[in-house]
Structure formats: structure tokens, C-alpha cells
Amino acid sequence: MDINQTTEENLLNAIHNNRLSHTYMFEGDTLETLRRYSMFFALNIFGDTARNRALLEEGNHPDFYYLSTEETTIKKEEVAHLMHAMNNKPTETEYKVYVIEAFEKLTPQAENSLLKFLEEPPEKTIALLLTIDKSNILPTIHSRAQHVFIKGDSADRMKELGDLSEGDLQTIDVLSLNAAHIKELGEDFSRLRNAALEFSVKWINRHPLVLLDIKPMLDMCSERRDHLLLLQLIDGGVRQAMHSKLNLDIFKPYKEELKVDKMISVNHLTKMLEEIEQANKMIQFNVHPTLAFEGMVINSKG
């Protein structure tokens, strides 16, 4: 069953079984998909009637508030306006629902002002926090939310990234990469993808000079999420090589053929994947990227 179909069923079950949480964090890689699921959930919380559907589509539902911005940040004043609106009792339905799109845009002041509201929400009020980058959100907010992962729909992802090459789009779609992040990288994504592919092939085939490729590859990255993206791309290359070894053709993030030496075993590729996961954890704990990547290669020899 499709992961998002299961998610829909779980959300509907929470409504039908009267087990709604007061705060949900919808995480994913494509904002358009998260928007659609937030509207789906809100509609079903209110009741999927013609009237509720029409009010939501027109943006006039009195029990619904949608906060979004084209700016780079969401300020404390905007959050204060939302909280004021949510303190009123529902008029059309049993619940009030609010959505904050791109929650990672909240300034520290806005986030802290909302925290108290999330700790003591008005009765029958449900928050839907949408994020494509949860890494800098306060841990205290994470702890108060029920997390729901929603994989970006291919059509939404392609709509955001239509200017990239066919090979780039295939990689992005198969690996479910963060569309907003890729869009920010622009042409740099293609260079990072190609470097990751070249590195993966050398590493898989135990090229003696593969460690020399790490620094120029990391020089293409400017922040932690770039390093994590690089690991996703390398992970995709290793997994594609493993599928090829097993004569499977169900996972192919790279259009290019990955040439793998006959002597390379599935066990070796499995060990590489384990080291990628370890490097991922190290990066998330702010270990220097060079140490994480070099350790990944050296430890895989094992």
C-alpha cells in the first residue's frame, strides 16, 4: 500500500475514533503535497460536507486559519494575530483548525511565543505545522507534536523543478529529495549530483585514491543540509549498485550505468550503507563533515 494512502487512513481513523491530537507536524520533501494533505485533514476534521468544502476552497471558513508568507521569515506579530483568531470559539463546526506553512520560517521570537499556545491550546483547537526542514525547529515544539511523514507526490515535485535535466529529475524523484532545497541550490545541484555519483562508483570499486575526492566534493556544500543531501545521493548510488548485483531493476535513482567490479559483494555494499547511516548521524551531531566522510570510507574497508 502507498505510504500516503496509509497516512490518509491513519488521519481519518484518528477523527472517527475521536483520538485527535492538538498538534500535528506534517513533514515532507514537497510543500505543495503538504498543503494538500493539510486541507484534506482540515476538511475531514470539520466534516466533509459541501458547505465546509466550499468555505475552505473560497478561503472563508470561520473556523480555519492558514498562515503562510512569501517572505523568508514568519514574524511574532503574524503568530500573535493567528493566536488571537484561534482564541475565539468555533462557529461553523465543533473544531477550530490552523495551519502554519513552512514552519521552519518562524523567527525565534515567533516560535517562543507560539510555544505557550501549543502547551495550553484552547479547547477543540488543532494545529497543523507544515515543514520541509525540521532541523532547526525547537525540540520542545517537536515534543508536543504528533509527527506525520508525507512523501511528496511526483507531480508536485516535478512542477517545482521543471527546469532540471531528465537525469537530475529522475534522481530527485526516486530518492524523494527535498524539492525546495534543490530549487535553492539551482545549477549547483547538478554538480553535486555528478560528484556524488563519481565518488560512489570509486568508493564501491575500492579505488585507492577515493579519499582525495572528499574535499572537492564537500567544498560544493555550504551548510549542514547540503552535507546530508550529499549522503542521500551517495546512499542512492550504493543502493542502485546493490539492486544491480541482485539482478533487480526496481530502484534506479541514476540514469547512468554504475559499473561495479564483479568481485564486489553484497555484504560489502551492505557495510557501506551502514557507514553512510553512521556518517549521517555524525553530521546531525555537528561532527566535522570531513571527519564523518573520511571515517565512512575508512571504516567500510573493515
Rank of each mutant, 00 (worst) to 15 (best):
S143I: 12
D163L: 06
I150V: 09
E119W: 08
L128K: 06
A155I: 14
R206S: 06
V174P: 01
K116W: 10
I182A: 04
I150L: 08
L218F: 08
P121D: 09
Q232S: 15
K151Y: 00
N178T: 07
E198P: 09
M158T: 07
R157T: 11
I141H: 14
W203I: 03
K116Y: 07
D133A: 15
L128G: 02
T171M: 09
E119Q: 04
R239E: 09
A196S: 15
I182P: 03
E198A: 15
A241D: 01
D249W: 11
L229M: 13
Q240I: 02
E223A: 13
D133I: 03
N112V: 05
L114F: 14
D219E: 14
K116M: 08
P216R: 04
I204D: 00
K183D: 13
P139I: 08
A241Y: 02
A180E: 13
I214T: 06
I204V: 11
A110H: 07
E123W: 06
P121M: 11
N112G: 11
R144K: 13
K116Q: 05
L209N: 11
L129I: 03
P208C: 06
I234F: 06
L130D: 04
E123F: 12
P139V: 05
I141N: 01
H207L: 02
V174H: 00
A127P: 00
T140Y: 13
K105N: 03
I214S: 08
R144A: 07
E123G: 04
F149N: 07
L229Q: 08
A179M: 04
M220A: 09
